[in-house]
């Protein structure tokens, strides 16, 4: 089978499977989040009531948007404190068979920010830093709760469209409980079992030593007492030559974390190699399941949206925009990677695909996945807020690396994170109808709600927050010693590494371009701050928009109302997304992957 056909077939299979599963899941989520009686609510009612009683929650009361927002912020503040404390105290806590010492304060801060914001940026190496309790009770719990937070915000924005002259938008504690209890937990349990079936490990054993057949000699980087690499006077890593015939195999409760890592679009790997590690993602089938899990809930939420607003075509229009952008950019990634490095070809190396080799650019890719599954995974993980990786994005060709970077910069809405994808897409829909309204001279409306100055001001806060923190953060890193010290590659590629790090943090993705030493005080602190602002300021604006819309009356549909369920609206939406993404980021992209691409072409 030819490589392009393999890519097209794999992509079509994954998308067909996800769309097939997304429909019933989307309808189910609409029922659950609105409390319409179904089998899950009946079975889960006693547990749900117990949770409310134990936490002192009045499930029948609803609040306005500002009280809802402050509840959400307090909840996530508490989550950040718990994750921070677990890391700093882990040497005294149980389930730490490797006796890992406390994680450094700056790394603990960064990781706490990363996991409450659904970013899951990892400056640390999981298997050599985190005890099992920290992984399970800190990181995996936040994988559920951060995804539940995102889903709650998306549901509230939908309520904003469907409620009329309402002062309340919902109950945050009920929304988070229901999305965790009825959606994320059962799906994660199912996927964890399926992954165990493929060979993903699930235990709390201490690490195992295996004796290798051959002796291995390698340069081992020296680290200080906090696990950070030691550098010499010139800033190069200090290494020592080590010969060994023993390989340590890390263990742990991986499958349970892997499942919610993908389903919750979190992305924080149990191991440093993330989904490239054979204990996280051992087979082609587990890889298929993980890509599908990444895309499932964000796509299903478009059905939820259609069901809740009473017109499923509205959801289909959003889904079409998501999928068109996703497919187009995934194809660019695949073509770039399969095309390979022109310098390799000019050196008389056969880089073409044959029956015995994949051809193209296999640097940083697992042979068990190949180029098609790696390009698809890279596009899925950055088109959502996941950030899990099954290949090294840093090793992609310049235009291959451009794709994950640009997918994040578009706002991660192809199809986006759990909840975040839908509400980001809805903000772009509001912008789209506003632009269309300006062109035709009518008051913009979306789903029967007039879009006025307040909504546009809030949408502007939403749209501008992330590019502001990403570009200012990148500029500061480029200008300061602390920022430049972490870069391992010179020139345009080094700039891409910094831009990628801040783009990933600001958009709450969490994948890394690697090639950058991010476990430093500069990057731990700056990226931590960027992650929080990039997550919660747009959420505040979204909830304010929801409150504003909910308080409005619904205007009747007339002949002058622009339809928002057809191909024309989908094209308008895609145009708005691409236009804003390009306007925000083209100058920065031109200095990174674009110039690197032309340098490579020029050298060729």
């Amino acid at each position: 089978m030819s490589a392009p056909l393999q890519f097209a077939l794999l992509g079509a299979l994954v998308l067909a499977f996800v769309i097939l599963c997304a429909r019933p899941l989307g309808i189910y989520m609409a029922d659950v989040m609105e409390g319409k009686p179904n089998f899950a609510l009946r079975w889960g009612a006693p547990l749900e009531r117990w949770i409310y009683r134990a936490c002192g929650i009045d499930a029948r009361s609803e609040t306005g948007w500002s009280t809802y927002t402050i509840g959400l912020l307090v909840f996530n503040l508490a989550g950040a404190m718990v994750v921070y404390a677990l890391q700093r105290l882990q040497q005294w806590l149980p389930l730490n068979p490797q006796h890992f010492s406390a994680v450094s304060a700056d790394s603990s801060f960064n990781t706490a920010m990363a996991f409450v914001t659904n970013t899951d940026w990892q400056g640390y190496s999981g298997e050599s830093t985190m005890g099992y309790l920290t992984q399970a009770a800190g990181l995996a719990v936040q994988n559920f709760l951060s995804a539940a937070t995102g889903m709650a915000v998306a549901i509230v924005l939908i309520r904003g469209f469907i409620r009329r002259s309402a002062a309340t938008i919902g109950n945050f504690w009920v929304d988070v409980t229901r999305s965790s209890l009825y959606v994320l937990l059962p799906l994660a349990a199912l996927l964890a079992v399926a992954l165990v079936g493929q060979g993903v490990i699930q235990n709390v054993h201490s690490y195992r030593d295996a004796t290798t057949i051959e002796k291995l000699t390698f340069d081992n980087p020296k680290t200080d007492s906090e696990g950070k690499p030691l550098l010499d006077d010139k800033g190069n890593p200090v290494t020592e030559s080590v010969t060994t015939q023993t390989q340590t195999l890390p263990m742990g409760p991986v499958a349970s974390q892997e499942a919610i890592k993908e389903l919750g679009t979190n992305g924080g790997g149990f191991f440093n190699a993330n989904s490239a590690h054979p204990f996280e993602n051992p087979t082609a089938l587990s890889n298929f399941m993980e890509i599908a899990a990444i895309l499932l809930i964000p796509l299903a939420l478009t059905y939820t949206f259609g069901v809740m607003v009473g017109d499923r075509r509205q959801g289909y229009a959003l889904m079409a925009a998501m999928l068109i952008l996703f497919a187009a950019l995934a194809a660019v990634a695949f073509v770039s990677e399969q095309g390979g490095n022109p310098l390799t070809a000019s050196a008389s190396v056969d880089a073409g695909a044959t029956a015995t080799q994949s051809g193209g650019n296999m640097e940083g890719k697992e042979t068990r996945f190949g180029i098609a599954a790696s390009a698809l995974f890279a596009s899925a993980t950055t088109g959502t807020s996941t950030g899990a990786v099954n290949s090294a994005h840093d090793s992609m060709m310049p235009m291959g690396g451009f794709v994950p970077l640009f997918l994040m910069q578009l706002g991660e809405l192809t199809p986006g994170g759990v909840g975040t994808g839908l509400y980001t897409m809805l903000i772009f829909a509001i912008l789209g109808v506003f632009i269309a309204g300006l062109m035709i001279g009518r008051t913009p409306e979306y789903l029967g709600k007039k879009i006025q100055a307040r909504e546009m001001k809030l949408a502007s806060i939403f749209i501008l927050t992330t590019p502001t923190v990403v570009l200012i953060g990148t500029a500061i890193a480029v200008m300061t010693e602390g920022g430049r010290a972490g870069v391992l590659n010179p020139g345009a590629h080094g700039f891409s590494e910094i831009l990628y790090a801040f783009t990933s943090a600001g958009n709450n993705n969490g994948s890394a371009f690697a090639g950058i030493s991010a476990n430093t005080v500069f990057y731990n602190v700056s990226l931590g701050i960027v992650m929080w602002i990039g997550r919660f300021w747009p959420i505040v604006a979204t909830l304010a928009i929801a409150g504003s819309l909910a308080s409005k009356k619904r205007v009747p549909v007339t002949e002058g109302t622009m339809p928002t369920h057809g191909a024309l609206f989908t094209c308008l939406l895609i145009g708005t997304i691409v236009l804003i993404g390009v306007l925000n980021y083209v100058p920065a992209l031109a200095l990174g992957p674009v110039v690197e691409h032309f340098m490579l072409s020029g050298a060729h």
Partner: peptide, 30 residues
């Protein structure tokens, strides 16, 4: 050291609450 990072977390939280309150005071602009 811990107190500094906990204060940074608290500061980020307070800034977000501040944004919420500021938006609450934002008129409809019409």
């Amino acid at each position: 050291m811990d107190i500094i990072y906990l204060l940074v977390i608290l500061g980020l939280f307070m800034a977000s609450v501040g944004l919420t309150l500021a938006i609450g005071r934002l008129g409809d602009g019409s």
